[in-house]
Nucleic acid binder design. Structure first.
Lengths: 121, 121
DNA sequence: CAGCATCCAAGAAGATACTG
DNA sequence: CAGTATCTTCTTGGATGCTG
């Protein structure tokens, strides 16, 4: 197990390029909220309140701010339906799904971590 | 994944659990420097200066602070050799390697992203 | 419901200088 | 080499109230 991880993490010659790639990614998904929001929308949540309810602790201010920037960066689509009252839907773009592997790896780590510190499943 | 709308709207336990796991992980690896440092040490860098040189932009202050906290959290081992001058070595624990999949997923994303925006490999 | 505006606190991070 | 110490700036994020 350790040997495996050690192996995959050890390519000295490409180290600089990989550190760069890692730092780029951290820059893009940085902050507490970006990945949980992506995860929520990719999971099918479309409405502002639904997304907010699905992410413990997030305020309307932060959610609003992140959604706006994510729309600018083409991570999500925002569609307004002129009903009464107005409804808005957020949906993921293909680009948004590219974060899937990162999110899954992090969910996996988090579950194992919790199991480890609580001692149960 | 979202075959039943009511499931999405009612937030099944599984989804809540996954968001929780994701937020836990973000909390642990949060910040700009934690993952690059883990990556550097897992890649075999042991000395303070070597680690610093391998991570563009990090200051001695931030590196020092992170290393201290990572040692407290058993992510790394710190060994002092009483030579003249004194040398210090940081090495990864097994726990540290558990971040491997996350780091690899992020490196992969970063490489593809760079390829995409620069248009070349 | 879907946000925006405002004010403010706390922490992360940077610059720089210095020590054993 | 391996850090500490200070000072300052910047960013994140929280609280709250308000609007169409």
């Amino acid at each position: 197990m350790k040997k495996e991880a050690e192996k995959v993490l050890s390519f000295p010659r490409k180290q600089a390029e990989e550190i760069q790639a890692l730092q780029d990614t951290i820059y893009v998904v940085g902050g507490k909220w970006r990945l949980p929001i992506i995860n929520s929308i990719c999971n099918g949540n479309k409405r502002f309140r639904d997304i907010q309810r699905s992410i413990p602790g997030i305020t309307t201010r932060m959610l609003s701010r992140e959604l706006k920037e994510m729309e600018l960066n083409k991570l999500i689509n925002r569609t307004v339906y002129a009903d009464t009252p107005v409804t808005v839907e957020y949906t993921s773009t293909d680009y948004c799904y590219s974060f899937g592997p990162i999110i899954l790896a992090m969910i996996d780590w988090g579950k194992k971590h919790r199991k480890k510190i609580t001692g149960k499943d």
